[in-house]
Design a protein around this nucleic acid. Structure first.
Lengths: 337, 337
DNA sequence: TTGTAGGCGTTATCAA
DNA sequence: TTGATAACGCCTACAA
């Protein structure tokens, strides 16, 4: 506990010839002070290099100026991007971002929630609406402001996007190009409502066209390039072979494309590929990837702003729509005849 | 300040029929207690659902069980991966990870350091050894344990890797393949000692072969795919044209490869491409990317373990070597004659 | 092995 | 507009 001699509130108070309370007000509610006093206090504070102690402040006020975020993994283009925009937004509002990840393990997520709750955060961002009931109870009991992202849940606020619609857009695009045998490579559906919704969207769109998405046409894989390759290789060996593949996320779709090319198939002439997410890479591939754009950075920013606004005003801001849109590029084409 | 009625230390003490100090010991130094007392206290704590208050704990002890990490950006395959392994490691040790980013702006980094210092962290991970002198003073004055990553600095501990050597490996590989006109697409060198060291490595390797790396053969770009494409397009229009391009990071190299392919050049027959980093994507490209492997996840893990060990034992652990290695894949080949 | 009691640095209530 | 003063919840010498 070699606490460095930091100058503290009382030191500033003494130097400025005022009470500690006044210094505290100068830091938090400057409008309550006489102009002259304020100036004097600020001057002393600056001169002494005073920095309020976060722990003391938090203990006394009950607020930490920290926001938690728990994501499946930091090591993903999607979540990294969302967190980056969250962090930037929070920094602007003088909030700190505390992150945790759970690697798709509900128990680990619950543990992370518990840890962040104990640490003391003012708000929390979570991914998806599905979690252990223990976690939901923990959150409810704590009264902590929570924002879910990507998928919502009736008990909580959310910045959700239309994952089901994204699946529909991807599938309809292929249907319109004449494809009838469409394969789907998705992430493990367990503890992943985003992937389930996207899968359902694809399935529904196909149903409407009178096509049944059989289990044989779905491959569940880890959300990595390697997963995409494995999934594609699996689906491309079924007979009759699909003429198009949809990836539940772009990373999977890119893996599919690489596998197809490695097998000597020409994309999109012999096989079409469509993704969902629109990560940076997708626009730069050759052929570039047709995908459904998800406004990832906006999700992070709005999650952050939602929490900050609620903490400031006591009311949630209106949520602008987060639209998704099909982005047609070069990886999709007419079904081979 | 609607603090929820959380049960606190005294409640547990009362329930267990012991003093608050005993409960505190049960949580922090269980070995000091009689087996029987410990059991009783733990039982009461469990029954009441007791969770120590982080703020109070921190105020009283001066420790926060939080580690800060400030990276250029979260939205990068490299830093995201390092942070993911840091987070996983810290979680295992019951530490929390607080992240901030500075977008390659030294002033923003200093501000982030200031913010984390005020918040109260037990240790800090930073990227590279270069920063505003104000930041260095701030850190020195605080006495906070700091670990630099990728590049070091004499004032601090570091988990550094041989960036200069990585540049050499990349360049020598191309030299051995007969290339003499080698272009380099790197990140902005300002406030980026990693990129400067890699550039110097390439330059030195070429010098040894009697080749001068002229400014015309270097293109500084943002660390994105688009940056790689722009850089490549720039270098490929000089005459005589380079027969090989090195990317200061894989993302740039991949951008170079895409640009080359978009121009109709066959990789590696007409142009060779080499990267540095070895991100997941690189192995899956077509052609797959020759690159210098950097143990990114290990950097994050060791930074975390270094800090944790120091905080626990008061001594820094020995640092295992973090070796780099050339990974020859398909994107590099003999120089065209 | 356990208890007592004095902080840790701010905030916030109440009074002046 | 400012000042006293009591929390905030826990840790840790020191004493027993």
């Amino acid at each position: 506990m070699q606490r460095i001699n930091r100058t503290k509130l009382v030191d500033v108070a003494r130097a400025a010839g005022v009470s500690p309370a006044t210094v505290s007000r100068a830091m938090n509610e400057p409008t309550l002070l006489a102009e002259d006093t304020l100036r004097r206090v600020r001057e002393s504070a600056r001169r002494l290099g005073y920095r309020p102690d976060g722990a003391a402040r938090m203990l006394a006020s009950g607020r930490s100026r920290a926001i938690g975020a728990i994501v499946p993994t930091l090591d993903s283009a999607i979540f990294a991007r969302a967190l980056q925009s969250m962090q930037a937004t929070l920094a602007r509002e003088a909030y700190q971002l505390v992150v945790a990840s759970h690697e798709m393990n509900p128990a680990a997520e619950t543990e992370a929630i518990r840890a962040l709750l104990a640490r003391g955060i003012d708000g929390l961002m979570l991914v998806g609406g599905e979690r252990a009931s223990e976690a939901r109870e923990l959150l409810a009991a704590s009264g902590l402001p929570v924002v879910l992202t990507w998928c919502g849940h009736p008990e909580f606020r959310s910045i959700a996007i239309d994952n089901h619609g994204a699946g529909i857009l991807a599938a309809r695009h292929l249907l319109q190009l004449g494809h009838r045998r469409i394969g789907l490579v998705v992430g493990y559906q367990h503890f992943n409502d985003r992937q389930r919704a996207r899968t359902a969207g694809v399935s529904d769109a196909l149903s409407q066209a009178g096509i049944v998405l059989t289990p044989a046409m779905i491959s569940e894989q880890p959300l990595t390039l390697a997963g995409g390759r494995t999934g594609a290789s699996q689906l491309l060996e079924t007979a009759p072979r699909p003429t198009a593949l949809i990836g539940g996320v772009d990373i999977l779709a890119i893996g599919c494309m690489q596998e197809a090319k490695a097998r000597g198939d020409v994309v999109p002439r012999e096989i079409s590929i469509v993704g969902i997410d629109d990560i940076e890479m997708s626009a730069h591939l050759q052929p570039s990837l047709t995908t459904v754009h998800i406004p990832t950075a906006a999700i992070g920013e709005q999650a952050a702003m939602g929490l900050v606004t609620y903490l400031r005003d006591g009311a949630w801001p209106g949520q602008p729509e987060l639209p998704i849109a099909l982005v047609v590029r070069q990886s999709s084409g007419p079904a081979p005849s």
